[in-house]
Design a protein around this nucleic acid. Structure first.
Lengths: 205, 205
DNA sequence: AGATTTATGTGATCATTGATTACTTAATGC
DNA sequence: GCATTAAGTAATCAATGATCACATAAATCT
């Protein structure tokens, strides 16, 4: 029969735990996440996870890093579909940002939570700097226009996620967003460069 | 001498626990909040808090409600200091909103958290509707302009709190915010009414 | 190959926490 | 005064994050 004896070593337990934790967080949110339940789901003893993650915070940080990687993908996809104009590419950043938040609300909240993750973890910084806003912020390069546009897309994301918009966000917002973006684009020097100079070279691969 | 025997009944334990919990949350955040520690701080047995709060979530909801009340005060103060023009009053709403978030980051996050509070609790709704944005939202009255302006102030608040702005938010943002608000004000019908029709009658008392 | 060292998982155990229950004590109403 | 109800206590439970000594397998060295 196919009752193959379970080997003592798992193979890649770190990844398995991370995947299981991500699966849970994406569906249920991080509040109900338990390291023990994760270990159990991967058929491993309760304390095994601690061999690979110093503590819960460390696991949460790894998940947030993955979240930024996924968000970067969403943005890149959106940029790939966008027109060639600078403005179109810039808009694609904001659209990808909000789109990701709507698709992965639990991950999104975790990525911007305080206390639950370690904002200085190298793996986290490495992934988050794939997001144009973080690139500029990391360089101490945030113009007022950057802050306004980032604030706008971030706030729309959070409020939509928190159900304060009755789910009507993605529909009718398009035209007026255009006008708004034009104003913003006229505001700060590094504003329009946001999606260009620092955009991940998704097109060059 | 002044060792007066502690009476069996506390007087107003519910309020005492709530105050202690608020004190902790404002300083440390909700993640490290323990009902037992609260009870201990108020010199009462571990389970006493459950007489007044069904569970932790219920206590968190009460704290969030208090948060909205405080936010409403901040906004009213700001409006009282503002000029008489509609635009000035409207701006005061946004400024008060962000100001409160910067002063009480932990409360602010709790108020907009999901899962940790019960968004339908009557006491919460009663307080949150003192905030103009929630009044409009509750009426199903949110124009696109409302959403954009709310999104902007909310996002700026969250990002500033999460330390993505290097603490440079309140300084140079003033002039450009003006221009932005003008555009927004031209956008949606209920947009300008936001701070007027529904503004708490702080001036009339 | 055989021995040694290192990485990885186990099982037991701890302290803390949210929550419940049976019981005690005081306040309130008749 | 007496019954009823509100409010606090002590004991207890199950779940959790975390740590430790130990077991097991893999990698490395000779």
């Amino acid at each position: 029969m196919n009752k193959q004896k379970k080997p003592y070593h798992h193979g890649d337990l770190r990844q398995a735990i991370l995947d299981e934790a991500l699966r849970h967080v994406r569906k249920e949110g991080i509040d109900s996440l338990s390291l023990r339940a994760c270990s159990k789901a991967v058929q491993v003893s309760p304390g095994a996870a601690f061999r690979h993650f110093k503590d819960k915070r460390s696991l949460a940080t790894a998940m947030a890093a993955k979240g930024f990687a996924l968000m970067a993908e969403t943005i890149e996809d959106r940029q790939a579909q966008a027109g060639p104009s600078e403005m179109a590419k810039f808009r694609a950043v904001g659209e990808g940002y909000v789109l990701f938040a709507l698709r992965e609300p639990n991950l999104f909240r975790l990525m911007f939570s305080k206390g639950q993750i370690d904002p200085n973890a190298p793996e986290l910084r490495e992934q988050s700097k794939k997001i144009p806003m973080f690139t500029a912020s990391g360089k101490g390069n945030l113009s007022t226009g950057d802050m306004l546009s980032w604030g706008l897309v971030h706030g729309l994301s959070e409020l939509a996620i928190a159900d304060h918009f009755d789910g009507t966000l993605p529909e009718d917002i398009d035209g007026k967003l255009d006008a708004l973006i034009k104003v913003m684009a006229a505001m700060g020097p590094s504003f329009r460069a946001l999606s260009l100079e620092n955009s991940p070279d998704a097109a060059s691969g």
